[in-house]
Write a protein that binds this DNA or RNA. Structure first.
Lengths: 198, 198
DNA sequence: GTCTATATTGTGATAGAC
DNA sequence: GTCTATCACAATATAGAC
């Protein structure tokens, strides 16, 4: 059903995915605005025009990547609520998601042009960020401002520490490092005992 | 001594600093590659050509900004070693530095084009990152990999949580929020007691 | 699906008047 | 110090052959 029969070994869906993978790498390395169509087609091994068969614009590639990211995030959020997952499990999956989608995570979390584009999009359709949902699951019942800061801090560790470590290790994260990141994130998330009696 | 007498109210040094301030804002908002000379001159209220009296290129503006950042970082490192500062004080000053130089911090810490440019620069002159010095001061005597991860995690919190909070609050950080960020960073930095006996 | 052009606009940068 | 005008080039994107 999925194959039409007229495509060669590298069929349309395949090439499209290869383009997205390359775009994700390059956006993470040089930023969205700093990456040209020629950069992408060069690494792919084709001409610029070939890309326009698969995507109507450079922005269309970014939109597709952000869609992938939102889908992965939505899966995690859904699982966190349905199971439900404890903070340790949520943060652990976030570390794994960062490893598996490091280009995407770096682009969404760092690239200023992408962040401003997403803010603009969020303003247009009135929706808040997907991160907010994960945060509110992490903070649980205690919806205080302090709890929000702790949750955000734990997320900052899972994202930034994981990205920093795998950049020095060809995309791989050892079990020991993962455990250390997770432990630090959990400590950041935990409310200090002294605050209970105040 | 510093004034030559032929300049109007907004003298050269003043205009240069205004340009840098605007460039820092815009680089943080839209990224270095995503910001055009026209963007900067537009916010300044002049034409593009006027900028080239003060800077020889767009890259020259970035170089000047990175120089400012490195100088501020060097000041902190020097103070941390000379005084010497405890981790709590170092992290506290990093939060304050992030608030005072938020545009710079966002650009250096996030913008992929700037990060890759700095990596290339570091490879050329053989020097490591300035961050490494702060990290080694933070980890102190324990130079284990786990201690490095904890230090990096604490830094991730001071940077990311501070930037996130002041973005929602017109550049200001309340005392309470600052204390909460600092506490989370210190928890992330602390070695778990159980690890001592292992 | 991919190619060789080419159209078109954006961008960094310069020349020279004021 | 800033302007108008312009250049050279890089970038996105399209047209049409294969």
């Amino acid at each position: 059903m999925a194959r039409t029969g007229t495509q060669s070994a590298a069929d349309a869906g395949d090439t499209r995915q290869r383009i997205l993978a390359i775009a994700s790498e390059l956006f993470a390395e040089k930023g969205y605005a700093g990456t040209s169509i020629a950069d992408i087609s060069g690494r792919l091994g084709t001409t610029k025009a070939a890309l326009y068969y698969h995507f109507s614009s450079k922005g269309d590639m970014l939109t597709a990547l952000l869609g992938e990211f939102l889908a992965l995030s939505a899966d995690l959020v859904e699982e966190a609520i349905a199971t439900p997952l404890a903070p340790e499990q949520i943060l652990g999956r976030l570390i794994d998601l960062t490893v598996d989608s490091r280009g995407l995570m770096a682009t969404v979390g760092r690239d200023p042009s992408v962040r401003s584009a997403m803010r603009a999009e969020a303003r247009r359709n009135g929706s808040g960020k997907q991160v907010d949902v994960i945060v509110s699951v992490l903070v649980g019942a205690d919806q205080s401002r302090a709890a929000l800061i702790r949750a955000h801090s734990a997320l900052a560790i899972t994202k930034e520490s994981t990205l920093a470590l795998i950049e020095d290790n060809q995309g791989a994260l050892t079990e020991e490092d993962r455990a250390e990141i997770l432990a630090a994130a959990l400590r950041a998330l935990s409310a200090p005992a002294a605050a209970m009696s105040a």
